[in-house]
């Protein structure tokens, strides 16, 4: 099973990449859709024009939102759309007929998108390097390792969250509405719209205990050096705890959904 997977993976990656190339226009539009960080950047640099806000001067805001853009493009997932569509249109049946677990194939397809995303986001990454080069966690091997681990964690957390919500489509029609609510809370509590430390202290404290921050805010703060190494490691620990939790929960729901699927068909 594992060896089969290792042999299958390069092919799946290659085809995933070919699909990304085939859909490059759509992909580019998707990237442009992630323009909110730029708008927020414009807003906060205007606010910071007459003096810094907390630890954030104009340069810090620029670095923060560029980092948000980079991490968001790299780690975000389309799983919930894909899964709900496959369930609705019956393509899930074809996936179930293959001798590899559908979630493994999905994950391979998603990972295949990463190189293309790196390519597209590289200009932004370069600007970020110019703006905040010395602060970035890429010079120091320890901080770099923590950064990579937190990016992988963010990717996995988003993926399994979306498997969880997408699997709801096996039970209810409105899984995408549930995801919409998740997305709304995520935009606020992940640091996507506003750095968590600028929110009222109690909101920020709650947000640091919820999973949303670990989908985006944590790797961003590590990347631009907003957190010291000990608290970064603590954050990383909690992040991977959440990854484990969502992995288990999404698999349980998936299995329950499958029991339903094979009993009623679709």
């Amino acid at each position: 099973m594992m060896r089969h997977l290792m042999r299958a993976y390069p092919t799946l990656l290659r085809i995933g990449f070919a699909e990304m190339v085939a859909y490059r226009a759509e992909f580019l539009i998707w990237v442009l859709t992630t323009n909110m960080p730029l708008v927020m950047m414009g807003l906060w640099t205007a606010v910071a024009a007459d003096g810094p806000v907390g630890r954030f001067g104009q340069r810090e805001f620029v670095a923060y939102y560029l980092a948000i853009l980079v991490i968001r493009i790299l780690t975000s997932s389309w799983m919930v759309w894909e899964l709900t569509m496959d369930i609705r249109q019956g393509a899930l049946a074809a996936r179930l007929l293959r001798p590899l677990h559908p979630l493994i194939v999905y994950s391979a397809e998603h990972l295949a998108a990463v190189p293309m995303r790196m390519l597209v986001i590289s200009p932004v990454a370069i600007v970020l390097f110019v703006v905040a080069g010395p602060q970035l966690a890429i010079g120091d091997p320890v901080r770099l390792a923590i950064l990579l681990a937190s990016c992988a964690g963010a990717w996995a957390l988003l993926f399994f969250t979306q498997v969880l919500i997408g699997s709801l489509a096996l039970f209810i029609d409105s899984a995408l509405s549930v995801f919409d609510i998740w997305l709304g809370i995520h935009s606020l509590l992940s640091g996507y719209l506003v750095p968590l430390e600028l929110l009222p202290p109690w909101v920020s404290a709650v947000a640091h205990r919820l999973p949303f921050h670990y989908c985006l805010g944590l790797p961003v703060e590590i990347l631009i050096g907003l957190v010291d190494t000990p608290s970064a490691l603590r954050g990383l620990g909690l992040q991977w705890l959440y990854v484990g939790g969502f992995f288990v929960a999404s698999n349980l729901l998936w299995r329950a959904g499958m029991r339903r699927f094979v009993a009623f068909g679709a």
């Binding site: 089969h4 390069p10 092919t11 001798p99």
Partner: peptide, 8 residues
């Protein structure tokens, strides 16, 4: 190619 990989 994909099926070749999936079916090993």
């Amino acid at each position: 190619a994909m099926n070749r990989a999936l079916y090993d």
